[in-house]
Design a protein around this nucleic acid. Structure first.
Length: 277
DNA sequence: ATTAATGTTCAGAA
DNA sequence: TTTCTGAACATTAA
């Protein structure tokens, strides 16, 4: 499931391939039962992306942004199972959008959005609308510093795990990495956010950044269900470094206590009850 | 065959 | 104001 590291990997995987290329045709695939959700409308989306040049590719939290020469931005939200691919998709079944690019020798003729579950969304926004999206997001997890994190945590007494998932507080962390981050920082997922000591906030900030950086270097996590893959349809490798996620019943690699699974805000939390306090 | 589980975001309710 | 719940979906495992 694409969180910050997976989305960053998508961006890095397509940036050099598509920057400076022209979209010669935007194809909205209609092979699925439910058509993909497009903002503002599919007609204007197709009209305003065709025959425009892609001038850059950026990441905004868990979104991929394609900058266009018109000053507009294609904003792609992969959500659960969305992939951005230069290669053939895992199946032909769930292709959602194909952007056909001007042909260049040795380069991919297109970029596509493939989404098995179909929860992903695609939008065409102007600079103003993109700013509004940005305003609703907290500090990017890779840019976090201790003082900022302390100020954020002070504002709420919800559990630290749920707080880490709140995109308007900190942007980019999802369910998988929240568990891994808290384990690295040795902090219980159930502590109220505003109860953390200064040393705990320091450890947490360090864990947020180091887990995210390492996961980016490993090109994200590809789980057993194989939902996430990079732009060339290859697996990431950070799943080999998971300490607690989906490891309930196994020994904690740090203290050998049995890892437990709990549910917070309707999502699984994995943690070690001994070394996370 | 049915059902639970999977996780991100947003609208709407509490 | 803040926090919580359910819906948007498809697929797999039990």
């Amino acid at each position: 499931m694409p969180e910050l590291p997976e989305v960053e990997t998508m961006v890095r995987g397509i940036r050099s391939e598509v920057t400076g290329r022209q979209i010669i045709r935007t194809e909205i695939c209609r092979c699925s039962r439910k058509p993909i959700r497009i903002h503002p409308s599919r007609r204007s989306f197709v009209r305003n992306t065709t025959q425009t040049c892609i001038t850059g590719v950026e990441r905004l939290a868990k979104r991929v942004i394609l900058q266009l020469s018109t000053g507009h931005f294609i904003v792609i939200e992969p959500r659960m199972t969305g992939l951005i691919l230069l290669s053939d998709p895992p199946t032909n079944e769930h292709r959602r959008i194909c952007w056909h690019l001007d042909p260049r020798r040795g380069r991919s003729p297109w970029i596509q959005f493939w989404d098995r579950r179909g929860l992903g969304t695609v939008s065409l926004l102007d600079a103003n609308e993109l700013d509004q999206v940005r305003d609703r997001l907290g500090t990017d997890a890779l840019q976090l510093n201790t003082d900022q994190l302390a100020a954020t945590l002070r504002q709420t007494s919800t559990s630290i795990k749920v707080c880490l998932l709140d995109q308007k507080r900190i942007a980019g962390i999802g369910n998988l990495y929240a568990s891994e981050i808290l384990h690295r920082a040795r902090i219980s997922p159930f502590l109220p956010a505003n109860s953390l000591s200064r040393p705990q906030v320091r450890a947490l900030c360090s864990a947020v950044r180091s887990v995210m950086q390492e996961a980016v270097l490993s090109e994200g996590s590809t789980l057993g269900d194989g939902t996430y893959r990079n732009a060339l349809n290859q697996d990431g490798s950070y799943q080999n470094q998971h300490r607690v996620y989906q490891r309930a019943g196994e020994e904690c690699p740090r203290c050998r206590q049995i890892i437990e699974r709990s549910v917070q805000a309707q999502r699984s939390t994995f943690y070690c009850p001994r070394c996370q306090r």
